[in-house]
Design a protein around this nucleic acid. Structure first.
Lengths: 116, 116
DNA sequence: TATGAATATTCCTTGACGGGAATATTCGTG
DNA sequence: CACGAATATTCCCGTCAAGGAATATTCATA
């Protein structure tokens, strides 16, 4: 879970991941389509692989990288716990705002920010 | 999206997020229950806030932090694109393995890893 | 308005990480 | 078995982020 987040938090890796969503690609194609150098592509792919987000299939000297969606399934399972809070969220936010604006118990502070 | 990943990739922040899933808490309680110092708690909460994952409600000198699930909704939307690949994934993985083991076109390499 | 509680911010140091360049490795082929 | 293509690894460097300690800020209250 944390590994998944860490891996996808990197812009290039996220980009690579989405690129591989179309279809599996060898390292060369990835580096070319991302506009990054081959070593970086290899590094990022290794990171993604370490996180279980991609899998490798050797093809001669090439290595075809393809998506692995299992970590995403875990992510989905984790999200499941929060789905029930989605509608509730709006109500609470709305409620809080309403409460704050309708009945300000505290007097308005006179100190003003002069930062800008 | 990237911000969400980056924020939750940090163990302490992930922990805080899950803690706040139970109920909103002031900074002191967060730092105490996480076993981290107050300044770090404030910092992490600021990061989470910057990522839109929590919201603040002032209460006297205290600040009550509560979950915001909207980024998770975005995450869910993003996941949507990959859900259709979940069953497909198993078939493909199975297919590749079957193909590799049934008809190895390439001769088995004689170089053996002596790493271990 | 001085005080204490709760929280935020700053400064500092250190370790992790990404990019660049060079080099090593793997693999098919002649 | 030497060579070239594709990829991986290593070394170096600059940056960024996290933790620790100290300090600043905010707020209610007496």
């Amino acid at each position: 879970m944390l590994e998944t987040f860490r891996a996808l938090a990197e812009p290039s890796r996220f980009h690579i991941f989405e690129l591989l969503a179309e279809k599996p690609l060898p390292v060369g194609d990835v580096s070319e389509r991302l506009g990054i150098r081959q070593p970086q592509a290899s590094k990022h792919l290794r990171a993604l692989s370490h996180a279980g987000l991609v899998e490798v299939r050797p093809d001669a000297q090439r290595r075809i990288y393809a998506l692995r969606t299992e970590p995403l399934r875990e992510l989905d399972v984790w999200l499941e716990r929060y789905r029930c809070m989605w509608e509730e969220q709006f109500e609470r936010l709305d409620g809080v705002l309403r409460e704050l604006q309708a009945a300000p118990k505290k007097p308005i502070p006179r100190k003003k920010r002069t930062k800008r």
